[in-house]
Simulated scan of single mutants.
Amino acid sequence: MDMRAAVFRGPGEIAIEDVPKPALDAPTDAVVRVTHTAICGSDLWPYRGQEDRDVPSRIGHEPMGIVEEVGEEVRSVAPGDRVFAPFVTSCGECEFCRKGLHTSCVNGGFWGGEDGGAQGEYVRARHADGTLVRVPDRHADDEETLQAILPLTDVMGTGHHAAVSAGVDAGSTCIVVGDGAVGLCGVLAARRLGAERIIAMGHHEDRLALAESFGATDTIAARGEEAVERAQELTYGGANHVMECVGSTGAMNTAIEVCRPGGTVGYVGVPHGIEDDGLDIFGLFMDNISLNGGIAPVRAYADELLADVLGGTLDPSPIFTKTVDLDGVPEGYRAMDEREAIKVLVKP
């Protein structure tokens, strides 16, 4: 049996094609009918030709939907349950899952291949008990709540990881570098953790206005050294907690420059070109700045963030500024690539 899914056909080319529908392959698997998913900023790297990816290959990694079928060993979810899943699968039982580092799970992996990229009608969730997060029945059909939950599959958990990695806590002053979906969620995360002052740095006035609605106390729209000087003025020499949410050399070096001596940069931007373009290691060294972070173990944060969404104290859904159906996914990529949308919601 086939399904329809987004397929990467090379830089600038996303096609909607008929592909084999995933089926149970192991007793720990579940098959999920996707009702909500999204296009991620990291999907744009291969789309822009800045990251190698197999051609053709299914794409997407932020699924939410209804469980259709489960293997005989699955215990935590059942057919008919509403679930969402982080951008990697994880067993929940290995050494790394037990320490909250689900992205290093020895049995897990990324969505794609025969499991189905999440920008499609179905996915197979391997290690369903360790991967899938069940949405309580009373919220399972509340569309506003579901759209607030969907960012927990990636960007909200990633923004939270940036804040945690930077050491943000009650009373902190912090700087968020980047006004994309992850940076905006980083602002939400910093507010959630009790930061007293949150400075958002970016290049788009509309996004910085959203950052203010999310809790940013100051915004900086300047570029280059002007932006660094403004941040240092606002913080009297830099912040102890800086969140790098872009993944470029420029953003990382900016984060280092605006970090106070002895402070911490929490980085979650997927690195592109940083190893080749001159990361300011000397700046880290001279000011005893700690660098902490990496790929976000979203599953480790999912339960606590879900509780806040369901409790009405956390709502990252405004990051979705465009909604498309499956046929509209290619247009969604174009809109995000051209900065016409912050993040695109997909409803297959």
Rank of each mutant, 00 (worst) to 15 (best):
F8L: 12
F8V: 09
R9P: 12
G10R: 07
P11Q: 11
I16E: 07
V19I: 15
V19K: 02
A23D: 09
A23H: 14
D25M: 15
D43I: 03
P46A: 15
Y47G: 06
D54L: 14
E62V: 05
G71T: 07
E72H: 11
S76I: 05
V77Q: 10
V83E: 00
F84I: 04
S90M: 00
K99L: 12
K99C: 08
G109I: 00
F110L: 12
G117V: 00
G130N: 02
D137C: 01
D137Y: 02
E144A: 13
T145L: 07
Q147W: 10
P151N: 07
D154G: 08
M156N: 02
V164Q: 05
A166Q: 08
D169Q: 12
A170L: 15
A181H: 10
G183A: 12
L184A: 06
C185Q: 07
A190C: 15
A190I: 06
R191C: 05
R191E: 07
G202D: 00
D206N: 14
L208H: 03
L210K: 08
E212C: 14
D218F: 11
E226D: 15
E233I: 00
N240L: 14
C245I: 06
T249P: 05
N253R: 13
T254Y: 11
I256K: 02
E257I: 00
P261I: 03
G263P: 05
P271T: 06
D276S: 13
D277H: 15
F282M: 15
M286K: 09
I295K: 02
R299I: 01
A300M: 03
D303A: 12
L305G: 02
L305I: 12
G312E: 08
V324D: 03
D325E: 13
D327R: 13
G332P: 03
Y333G: 00
Y333N: 00
A341G: 09
